[in-house]
Structure formats: C-alpha cells, structure tokens
Design a protein around this nucleic acid. Structure first.
Lengths: 183, 183
DNA sequence: TGCTCCATGTAACACGTTACATGATTGC
DNA sequence: GCAATCATGTAACGTGTTACATGGAGCA
C-alpha cells in the first residue's frame, strides 16, 4: 500500500482535485510513480473514508462537480509512520531488457527498431527533466532543505535517463555489429 | 502480460521445474523481474493449457511430485511475436525516493536509518552482480552474440547499483548536513 | 521425533488496467 | 452545433500478494 502515500505526499506538496492529481500522476510525478485516474479516485475515496483527508467544493467550482482535497492530521501522521517502515528496493522489471534476453536465447529477432523507440522516449524524458531543472533550480540559487532534497530527486531522474541512453546506445551498437548479413 | 514472457525466456535459457524457476525468480533473475512461486505456478498452468509449453515427470523425480517444463514451438512463436510489440518504458516506483519526497514536505522525519539500510542492500546486490560477472565473463574471453548481450544486461545492473549507491550517499550527506540540532 | 528443505498447489484479497458512462464547460 | 477538455465515477477483469494446506525426503 504505497499509492496512498504517493497521493498524500503529492497532496501535501499541492492540495488539489482528483482530476488535477490524476494529470500530475500522468506526467511529472508519473515518471517516478505512475497511476491512472481510476486508481486515484478509488484511493481518494478510501482515504476520505479513513479520515486521512477531507474533500470540499472549492470556491471556483461554479456548476462543475469539482472536488478539492486537503490532507488532515491523521493523513500526515500515517505518512510519517509509513516513512519509517522498512521497504525493499524495487525490482527493475524493465521490458526492453527482458526482450533483449529473449533475443539472446531465441537468436536474432531484430530488436533494433524497438530499441530505437526506447532511446527516443528516454531522450524526450531527459529533455523534460532538464527543462524542469533549469526552471526550478537555476545554478547558484540558494535552496531550503526541502528544495535541496527535491533537486537531488530530480537529478536522480536525470542521471537515470542519461544512463539508459548510454546503455541503449551501446546495446544498439552491439546489435548492429552482430546483425546477420541476410537482413 | 509480461510475466509469461519472462517465464518463457527463463525456461528457454534453462528448462526446469516450477520450483526451480521460482527460486531463480527470487534471486538472480528476480533482481530484474521478481515473481513469487504462486504467480509462477499459475502462469505455468495457463501456458501449459495454452500449448505454449509441455510438462513431464523428469527421470530423477523418484516419488516426488516434481514436474519439468519445456517450451514448445507455440511458446517460442509467442515470445518472438511479443518482442516486436511496442512497450512503454517502466516507471521507477522507487519507495525510498517517495519517502524522501514525504520527508521534504512533512519536514524532517529522519530517514537516515532507512537510507542506510537501502545503501547496504544495494551494496550487497552490487557485490553479487560483480561476482557473477567475474565468474561468467572473465576479461579477454571471446563472447558469442548471445553472451555479449547477456553481459551488457548484467553491466546495466552493475551500473544501476553503482548509481543508486552514489546517489544514496549524496542524499545521506545532505540529510546529515541539514539535520536539526535537537536530534 | 521433530526440523528444515523440496515441491506443488488453493483461496482470498489488494492493486492495476481497460472499457464504458455521464454531464458540464470552452473554443471553433 | 460539434469536438475537445474538464471532472468524476462504475464495472469487469487481470495481475500481484499473503496466508494456508499438503506431503515426501533428509538429517540430527
């Protein structure tokens, strides 16, 4: 049960509606922790019932069904409690790596196009992360403790994408160099 | 649906029993793609029913219930088909990163012990990967195409663990430097 | 005798995904 | 008027997790 804690964290960073949360989980936050809008609505309903947060109709709602959520003390307490729970490091579950293992064992199945697609996607993400970094953490700016942590988290994402790109290019070189001549 | 393909790949690498598979998914392979024995038995039963693999009682079974699995042509075909299906790159879903975001937004909750635990676990994995590398890919050894791919996959794991350690140490330094004096 | 490991499974439940539904607002 | 976007949800299904069950083999 960690989606709840991801939602709590995200709401504490910026209290908002389920819809807005869902959109954030589909882009910026979503690169670190993905969730669909159905999961988020379900989780919000549960946490509302549990008294971890409260919902209210925001002043700018007009005639829409828009609901706004705010974390309550019980929610903060639960989040703090959870941070001290020991957790296992995640497994990678990387599809492209699994496909390459399949290629190795099946004999050449031509993963070059799929690998290129992945490189392009990682390149795209890297650009986005660097844009966020340039915007939120310009060089020389003094940072609070919280901002310093957030910057280091973003840097983790940047380095991860850089590593993926470097590794993917090496793998691409290997695949092309050992390509059977018939193709 | 990718656990099926992970199992197929693993069985092609070495055809074996459900139990042995489960143990492999709990250690070496498991670092890249984790699964419990219940998942594996369920998946094996499904694939058996689908005609992707066959089960038989191995000669060394004795009086045990041991079953051995071998991938059939239909299974190979399915695996090859799947490798060409476009797939999204995985999201990280990294618990320690989420906890650090929670720390940033809640104010200091003291994640130093949990972070140290993670560093120790990543260090342990790194040692294991390097041992496997030294054993299976000694320097200067000529490699087949399949072995070269497998080596590069292992290197990905090694670099990932190295990056996790380096990042974790930076974060630890930051947390300690900004620790409130009361603690 | 009792303990651990081998070996396979069932059942219940939690979590994630896909498809569908509803209705209001905004922009062309 | 129509399409896209805002905004929230239900339902069905598939995958992953946890708990429990069964029974043989090896060993102290």
């Amino acid at each position: 049960m960690s989606l709840a804690h991801a939602v709590l964290t995200s709401l504490l960073e910026k209290s908002s509606s389920g819809y807005d949360l869902a959109r954030r989980f589909d882009k910026s936050i979503g690169y670190f922790w993905h969730a669909t809008h159905q999961q988020i609505y379900r989780e919000l309903a549960r946490m509302d019932a549990a008294g971890w947060l409260e919902s209210f109709v925001p002043p700018d709602a007009g005639k829409t069904r828009k609901k706004h959520y705010r974390v309550l003390d019980a929610g903060r307490a639960e989040l703090a409690r959870w941070t001290h729970e020991p957790a296992e490091p995640m497994d990678l579950r990387d599809t492209i790596t699994l496909k390459l293992r399949a290629d190795a064992v099946l004999g050449e199945v031509d993963l070059v196009p799929e690998l290129r697609r992945h490189l392009a996607l990682h390149q795209e993400r890297l650009v986005k992360y660097r844009d966020i970094e340039a915007r939120d953490f310009p060089a020389g700016k003094a940072l609070t403790r919280a901002q310093a942590i957030q910057h280091l988290i973003l840097k983790k994402g940047i380095r991860y994408e850089e590593a993926e790109l470097a590794w993917g290019r090496e793998m691409l070189t290997l695949l092309c160099a050992t390509r059977s001549p018939s193709r």
